[in-house]
């Protein structure tokens, strides 16, 4: 087996070191090495967004990033979104609006939606749908999800 690689990174603001096999994706490292199982494996080929995380502030599919690539980077996952004070407005509006059924797609949608709201706090419905085109949901349908995102935006802008 190839020699493991030592990687130093910051995950949700915390300095983190891990050892990974060169063949492991960042998603596999998060889930199998660091036990951060919030990011999900849906398609494992870049189409569904269930594995979304922020890498140095940019929204990426962690199934399409090698673990070793995280060296020196800042990674933010769904686990870093709620604060000790409570849920993020997106988490609240997803719950209240029943914008999930099985929930597999939810972490990805919330990480992606947060990335959008951070750069565009007052998106139109069209902008929300466009930004979330890389996230798939097989059970809820998109209307409730889009509505939850728009409501979270409205809450935050109040």
């Amino acid at each position: 087996m190839s020699k493991k690689i030592h990687v130093t990174t910051s995950i949700n603001g915390k300095e983190t070191e891990f050892l990974c096999e060169p063949r492991q994706s960042l998603l596999e490292v998060l889930r199998d090495v660091l036990m951060l199982t919030g990011a999900k494996e849906g398609c494992n080929n870049g189409n569904c967004g269930a594995c979304n995380v922020l890498l140095d502030g940019r929204l990426v599919n962690s199934c399409l990033v090698m673990g070793a690539e995280a060296q020196g980077c800042k990674v933010q996952t769904i686990e870093g979104i709620a604060t000790p004070q409570g849920l993020h407005p997106l988490q609240q509006t997803f719950l209240e609006g029943a914008a999930l059924q099985c929930g597999i797609c939810t972490p990805g949608f919330i990480v992606a939606a947060k990335a959008m709201l951070d750069q565009n706090p007052k998106p139109t419905e069209h902008q929300v749908r466009h930004f979330l085109a890389g996230n798939l949901c097989r059970c809820t349908g998109y209307d409730k999800i889009v509505r939850a995102v728009l409501e979270a935006a409205a809450l935050t802008n109040k």
Binding site: G46, G49, V60, A133, G134
Partner: peptide, 9 residues
Amino acid sequence: IGGIQIQSR
């Protein structure tokens, strides 16, 4: 190309 996630990379 792709969606936002793909365009990041």
